[in-house]
Amino acid sequence: MAMSTSNLTIETLNKMFAEGKRFDGRGLLDHRKLEVSFEVSNKAEGSARVKLGKTEVVAGVKLALGTPYPDSPDKGNLVVSSDFLPLASPRFELGPPKFDAIELPRLVDRAIRESHMIELDKLVVTPKEKVWTVYIDLYPINDDGNLIDAATIAAIAALKTAKVPGIDKDGLVDYDTHKVALPISKETAPISFTFFKLGNSIILDPTREEEEACEAKVVWGISKWNKQHMINSCQKGKRTVFTRAELEKMMDLLPEKFDELNDKLKKFL
């Protein structure tokens, strides 16, 4: 029964959202309390733990040497993975990933890649032969909804504190030496905002109970370039539609929401 929200609770949530109310007293577009901490693992090149209310996600950045992809011979590689550990929820099981676990890292990847936050062209060791691959691994520790947005924040927090390992005289990675910070843009870091819809109401940062009740969702990755807000990625999910009016409203909201969350994030960095 931890599985999904029941019919009658969904109807009540629908009425509540229509009145602009939520159980924890937040506004429909307010985030829960954000906490960010670092050094989840001193073996990672960078790592972070993010809590949004009771949702907790950890992210770790590891670098390894590899060959560049054929279509980008002068760039380092980025690989974003996630594992929905059975630790985080009675709904998660060992075994092949369900759709949510497949979608999440792909969405985080897209938001980061399209924002050009990581300067992949500065991660070349020997042109066309040897480059750094940046691995970002995301793990939910407690699932109380909105894992995608929490994971994106964890990923960029980990990237912001990441350092590049040294290379020894044999050309192998020396994980005992970390001198240089990971080359990332000073300007931009993406944040994702997943809007959820129930009835005619749109909400942000749902708890698990609220998220299960919602009928449609759309994830936007947004960053800032030259003081201009840029939408870098988007994915709509679930079965119900979004109207043009709803989408336009999101576009009006996003810049302000980005700045608001970015300011909160700065306090931790």
Partner: peptide, 12 residues
């Protein structure tokens, strides 16, 4: 082990 718990990243 989590992938980033060790120096040489552990594959999932």
């Amino acid at each position: 082990l989590l992938s980033f718990s060790v120096s040489d990243r552990k594959k999932p």
